[in-house]
């Protein structure tokens, strides 16, 4: 940047210098809250996963025992499988529907703005509230067949899928709309002149151009699927259980985050370290998936 001689200009040396000097001061609030709210708890949590503890300041080092217990926990493995299936199904459904809705709402139809607002609104409701509202809706309907969302694993699974789709399609839709609006008009026009059909235009021009949006949305919906907690807690709470003859039980609609929570609070403090170890494994899993997915989709993005 070329410095202006005029000392009153915004980028003049006289004004820029003190700002540069004091910049760290202005960074402190953000850096401090990041350190206090994220970095410190993260490393403390990592540390506690190697401990037996009651409160976070009252611990005893026991090494990797917790990880052994977490990995041999049948319910944790079940939750992993259930969550994986859930994440894949919700990823596909959310993105297909969100893209379709976004595509429809960018086709200059009447009331598009109203529709966008309405579709986005479920996102503004908290997960616990949504879970209870939908459990009432589902049970109101299912009681007609004398059953309940709590009675059947399949019902619970699809209930969670419907709820998650309903909540997240609107959000992803907004991202897709932004992407679709950024597709260059001249490219679409050129395709039209070259005689491309609507389908060809969609798959050969539009979709490659919205790849950045697709990256973001698949990334978000995949991690959201894995991290789902409040909706799971409020809608099914893990019910129904399969009760094994030896008295142990498998919570058939319990996802990973809820499994960790139940391990932490549902049982004696001996299992808090195990819950913490599960949480660390959970973090590695989600972070790994997200990074892999990000690098895979990045390669497909077109350079404009």
């Amino acid at each position: 940047m070329k410095l202006k001689r005029d000392s009153a200009a915004v980028n003049s040396e006289m004004i820029r210098k003190p700002i540069q000097r004091w910049a760290p001061l202005f960074l402190i609030p953000m850096v401090a809250s990041f350190l206090i709210g994220f970095v410190w708890p993260f490393f403390h949590g990592l540390f506690l996963s190697f401990c037996k503890f009651r409160t976070t300041s009252d611990w005893e080092w026991i090494g990797i025992d917790n990880y052994g217990k977490a990995l041999t926990d049948e319910s944790f493995m079940y939750s992993f499988g259930f969550t994986a299936i859930f994440a894949v199904v919700s990823l596909v459904l959310i993105n297909v529907f969100a893209f379709a809705v976004a595509y429809a709402l960018t086709q200059k139809i009447k009331g598009a703005n109203l529709f966008r607002t309405v579709f986005f609104m479920p996102n503004l409701i908290g997960g616990i509230v949504l879970g209870y509202i939908w459990s009432m809706i589902f049970d109101g309907f299912l009681s007609y067949y004398q059953t309940s969302i709590l009675m059947d694993t399949e019902l619970g699974f699809w209930g969670l899928i419907i709820l998650t789709c309903w909540q997240q399609i609107g959000y992803m839709m907004i991202i897709y709309i932004a992407g679709l609006q950024a597709v260059p008009e001249d490219m679409l026009e050129a395709a039209k002149i070259d005689g491309a059909s609507a389908m060809q235009t969609l798959f050969k021009v539009t979709i490659p151009n919205v790849m950045p949006s697709i990256t973001i949305c698949t990334f978000l919906s995949l991690t959201n699927g894995f991290k789902l907690f409040d909706q799971n807690l409020a809608l099914t709470g893990g019910s129904p259980y399969i009760i094994n003859p030896d008295g142990t039980s498998i919570h058939t609609t319990e996802m990973l985050a809820l499994n960790i929570y139940q391990t932490f609070y549902g049982q004696n403090t001996a299992s808090r370290g195990v819950a913490q170890a599960k949480a660390v494994l959970f973090f590695i899993l989600v972070a790994g998936l997200a990074l892999a997915q990000l690098s895979a989709t990045r390669k497909k993005e077109v350079q404009q």
Partner: peptide
């Protein structure tokens, strides 16, 4: 919570097999 799940299944279908699960939940679950 385990007992609630067993009782739910028993209430939906009060069979002997489902009652056995209730007993498992309360007794073996303990």
């Amino acid at each position: 919570e385990t007992a609630v799940n067993a009782l739910n299944a028993y209430n939906a279908d009060p069979s002997d097999a489902n009652w056995a699960t209730v007993v498992t939940a309360f007794i073996d679950g303990w």
